[in-house]
């Protein structure tokens, strides 16, 4: 299991479009992927959960990957968040 903290840098946070891209990317990996923000933990493979938490600009979230291809998954997801411009 590995985890990594990432800061959300895009102006509008993970709303419908970037959120969907994030979830779509997460779903391409077989491992379990959890997002943690503060006390809350939820599956990175559910757009509804992601949007209900309201991940916003400046938030620090931790991505936790566990299982097959966990290294690839964490790199891909944190890269995606680091390059969001919307």
């Amino acid at each position: 299991m590995i985890e990594r903290e990432v800061e959300i840098i895009n102006e509008t946070g993970l709303h419908t479009r970037p959120g969907n891209q994030f979830v779509k990317l997460a779903k391409t990996f077989p491992c379990d992927i959890i997002v943690r923000r503060g006390e809350t933990e939820f599956s990175a493979k559910s757009l509804l959960k992601l949007m209900k938490v309201g991940v916003s600009k400046g938030d620090h979230i931790t991505i936790v990957c566990d299982g097959e291809k966990e290294n690839e998954a964490i790199d891909a997801l944190s890269n995606f968040l680091a390059n969001l411009t919307e």
């Binding site: 419908t16 479009r17 959120g19 969907n20 891209q21 979830v23 779509k24 559910s46 757009l47 509804l48 959960k49 949007m51």
Partner: peptide, 19 residues
């Protein structure tokens, strides 16, 4: 594409297990 992706998100939301 940009605008259309929003509806892809809507499909994702309506298909969510939680719902």
């Amino acid at each position: 594409e940009d605008e259309a992706e929003i509806f892809e998100g809507h499909i994702e939301l309506i298909s969510d297990e939680d719902i």
